[in-house]
Nucleic acid binder design. Sequence first.
DNA 1: AAATATAAAGTAATACATCAGTTACCGCGT
DNA 2: ACGCGGTAACTGATGTATTACTTTATATTT
Lengths: 231, 231
Amino acid sequence: MIYKDLRRSIIVGHRKPGERLDLDVLAKGYGTSVTPVRDALQMISQEGLVTIKPRSGYFVTRVTLKQLDDMLKLREILELASVELASEKITEEQLDQLEHVHAGYTGEDDESYDRYMDENRHFHYLIAQSSGNQELAETLGRLHDRLVRFMVMCRVGATLESRHALIIEALRKGDATVARQVMLNEVDETRETILEGVIQESGSSWHLKVPDKKITMFGEKALPGDVICPG
Amino acid sequence: MIYKDLRRSIIVGHRKPGERLDLDVLAKGYGTSVTPVRDALQMISQEGLVTIKPRSGYFVTRVTLKQLDDMLKLREILELASVELASEKITEEQLDQLEHVHAGYTGEDDESYDRYMDENRHFHYLIAQSSGNQELAETLGRLHDRLVRFMVMCRVGATLESRHALIIEALRKGDATVARQVMLNEVDETRETILEGVIQESGSSWHLKVPDKKITMFGEKALPGDVICPG
DNA sequence: AAATATAAAGTAATACATCAGTTACCGCGT
DNA sequence: ACGCGGTAACTGATGTATTACTTTATATTT
């Protein structure tokens, strides 16, 4: 439970990169001792979301621009392979699931933004699963988790719905070429949006020492005014 | 230290899949308490090498034939992307490093087999790094770590040297097409060797213990027909 | 004389050990 | 074959030690 909650709070951007994660504070917040919190942080650090400075502390991992660019390029490789394989192997049932997830896309009011990102993740994860290669799906999912906070920060997602519809259509036809091309467009657009947004923000408060130590345990929403620092 | 040592012992196949990892025994072995061992196992489990059954125990992860096949296909995707990017971006210094690692390949006497696999890993990791994408390199490296034990088991590696020389040659020329093709051949050959070897071995000493209860991560189901590799 | 750098001491956080408790598994008996 | 009990393993808590960071004081340099 602690693992999932902590991980989610980092992924969606409630915890900012560079922020210190105090064992005692977290333990108090969850009403447990530090041991489960330690275990959770150790696990999360293996996914690259948390950095451990021995004898010093736990911190939300800071990401450099190069790392971000690398992640986005890797995502492109994996998403393209994924959609290509899926166009051959996807089943009717999986197509229906895709449609269902896609239909869940509502407006982009701020309060539903978290759910929106969840569904975007779900959409891409479903395609990866439809490739028939679970390893590919898991790898892509983990990568996606590390990218979501930047998507949230840069308000990626405004123009995703139409592309998603096109992808579903191409997959239904089994047209690998079109599916691949549309996916390439979406991934490229997302990449550019993120990189531009991040570069723009870079002057303000990229490396920071968070003065406000507000630490809330459960379900805090990302407010419009929140400055989310890439590190 | 414990993390690295335990991880290595699993990767090289010293610990067999399905084997129980007793906290107390390991702690005694390292001369510490169980806490550091716990931390190490938690971390290793995030890489998929160890499976945790809550309130029951820690076990070296068993791999199904499907999972193995998925991993090998994913490896193909990543290795091809890797060598393709590297053919454009690789530097003279990196080429020299590749030559040096390649030259380190000696015979295949059994006692140097571990070192041999280390060097094979190093070779592919260097190429991935030469792609300029560190994320790609690390993802491929993690995947490779999960595959090494099967390579060792199936004595993959006999005919790798000549292909490696061809790859270096193609990279030096910047010939992406040839490099890609040779890499494809090597990866395919490795895959077939592993799958054949695994299927052949499946009758003898593969399951050390009960085949009815299977331990898998991510809650996926074990199909009755699944061959459980090795141990 | 003032400012900066360095060193030392104190504080705060993690890492590890020990202990208590719960649970699953195995064997025995019915 | 089913159920019950015992044992052994993991999980979580508490306490202790080690380490890193911060602050302060002193000395040196400008």
